[in-house]
Design a protein around this nucleic acid. Structure first.
Lengths: 338, 338
DNA sequence: TTGTAAGCGTTATCAT
DNA sequence: ATGATAACGCTTACAA
């Protein structure tokens, strides 16, 4: 049915080896020959069998995307950016999602699925364990992390610590002295996850504030990086300390939950309480959420480019730090007078 | 480096053919033999080369997902549901995104990318042209549509016409007589896209309302299925007819844009104007958006299952109609008194 | 139930 | 610059 390489060879009057060279753009082919081959291939609507060429060459022209989510804002956008870049370079994208279950835990990365199947792996917003890292290394292909990656590895991410610090500084500068936090929960307890770094940055912000804010005046609850988690955490926060004047949610999605809970309780934003998030979610403007915005699809595109460069033999530096933008919106204001 | 099938064969003391049969669970293998093979394979950490087995068998154990978006609500959720189902069945997922450019147009589906690479194709929320349909058919693999598909094809989708009709009926029942619409724009002009059907359903609703609503009292603007498009369409709608008492947006994301525009203009929802969407976007509750909700990830899972069944040789009926749920929220209310 | 051996459709090595 | 041909690592008749 479908044309094979020797059909093209016969039609062009050359050997299969020459067809292969011509079609892949290798140098040592006479211009006239190449033209004839291209012509013949086009006429036959020939496309090389990916499995055959993978088997023979050892390359798959496929990059694996490992992610804990597709529908969440960050992951969806990173995947979108990466897919576009990879496809433009003629690579296929293999999606490997490790969904979180109800208890926020997940199956470990299964290297068997990726082995011999991809030329590179992009880990999207997923803190991995030491064992998983070893498993990924054993694939022996370029490995790039977007959004969260172990130090020393090739990774592209925002400055989580710095962004969190700036958020706290914005709040303190507006007179807030009782600031609750809704923290994310990393799927693996590693020191380099956004969950941890966005908490660390807040500590830095408090330390640098020039005003001592007692630990009791900055309570923290966990929100699992989800809207519902954020809502529940906000509820616990307000129950603990009804006198809070601000809440810093470590992600916009959790901040949405905070806003929902506040509305239910009749707490006015920002008159009674200010709310700030991190991420720059598309719908933040809709609810007037102040945030530190990052460019997720841009990071996905850069991550994909890095893999392509590594595949081309380039040495790439370990860290691409992506800038963030402060987006003040109506959810943040001066702290109410005491 | 990596173990191959003859390493396993040698270790288990059988032929490569037997290893192949044993590992794939084919019937004609003695229990004891199978155990020895499994044991040997485990010891060597053996995994069959996908390219080699594809080449030999003609199957790829991969399903292609063709979609115009990953970050939008519907597409992200469908992909998530489909991925989960396919992976559970041992299939890989190839992501093929056809991003829309600024003018809402997109590159045509490139069958070359899919040819010989997938055992099945799931088209996610994407109206395709006749040419594209022919190209997809030429792949000669199971083809399933989710969210939008040509009549007669295997597809899973909500009842767009019925849902739109119900939305209009809900508005009319609350006394609304001047109802604006924010319509989606299909990427291809086909009669069976949600964009068209959600408009058609509205017509049905008006016709069945028992009250004649003049065409001039139900103006329509296009919103491109995006938040910003929805906002712009709402602006045009209000400029045309400031006396509207309700807006039916053909998707929740466009409805979000409508709400944003209304807020900017100081139009109170629902006191001055009611807003209703379709989809059941996760963040609808946050802004109190009334909507007809559908289960996107469920549809993705069902679509994937259908492909798996077709691959198994089953005959599957052409249409799986997914139910919708009316979710009244605070954005809908009685029409204001004249 | 198991083994032998012929493909599957390329790429890459080595000549020419 | 081009051609022969041996891999690549499986699956699947066909035999036994």
């Amino acid at each position: 049915m479908a044309a094979r390489i020797d059909d093209v060879a016969r039609r062009a009057g050359v050997s299969t080896a020459t067809v292969s060279r011509a079609l892949r753009g290798l140098p040592s082919v006479a211009t006239a020959t190449r033209a004839r081959v291209l012509q013949a291939a086009a006429e036959l609507d020939y496309i090389a069998s990916p499995s055959a060429s993978s088997l023979a060459s050892g390359h798959t022209r496929t990059v694996g995307l490992v992610t804990p989510s597709i529908s969440r804002w960050f992951h969806g956008h990173v995947i979108e950016g990466a897919e576009r870049t990879l496809r433009a370079a003629g690579f296929d994208v293999l999606l490997h999602a490790l969904m979180l279950d109800a208890s926020m835990s997940r199956a470990p990365i299964d290297p068997a699925v990726l082995r011999r199947r991809v030329d590179g792996v992009l880990v999207v917003g997923l803190p991995v364990s030491e064992e998983e890292l070893a498993a990924l290394d054993s694939l022996d292909v370029p490995l790039v992390f977007v959004g969260a990656g172990p130090p020393g590895r090739v990774r592209v991410h925002m400055d989580d610590v710095g962004a969190a610090r700036m958020v706290v500084e914005e709040l303190v500068a507006r007179g807030h002295r009782r600031i609750g936090q809704v923290q994310g929960t990393p799927t693996h307890s590693v020191s380099w996850s956004p969950a941890v770094e966005r908490a660390q940055g807040a500590e830095d912000g408090f330390a640098a504030a020039g005003t001592v804010i007692d630990r009791a005046d900055r309570p923290v609850e966990r929100g699992d990086f989800s809207v519902e988690g954020g809502r529940a955490a906000a509820a616990r926060l307000l129950d603990r300390d009804p006198a809070l004047t601000a809440v810093y949610a470590h992600s916009d999605e959790m901040a949405f939950g905070v806003l929902a809970e506040l509305e239910d309780r009749g707490v006015r934003v920002p008159e009674d309480l200010s709310v700030v998030g991190i991420d720059g979610h598309d719908l933040g403007g809709l609810v007037g959420l102040a945030t530190m915005a990052q460019d997720a699809s841009g990071q996905g595109a850069v991550g994909a480019s890095l893999i392509l460069e590594m595949l081309a033999g380039a040495d790439v530096g370990p860290d691409v730090l992506y800038p963030v933008t402060w987006v003040p919106r109506r959810s943040i204001a001066q702290a109410p007078a005491l």
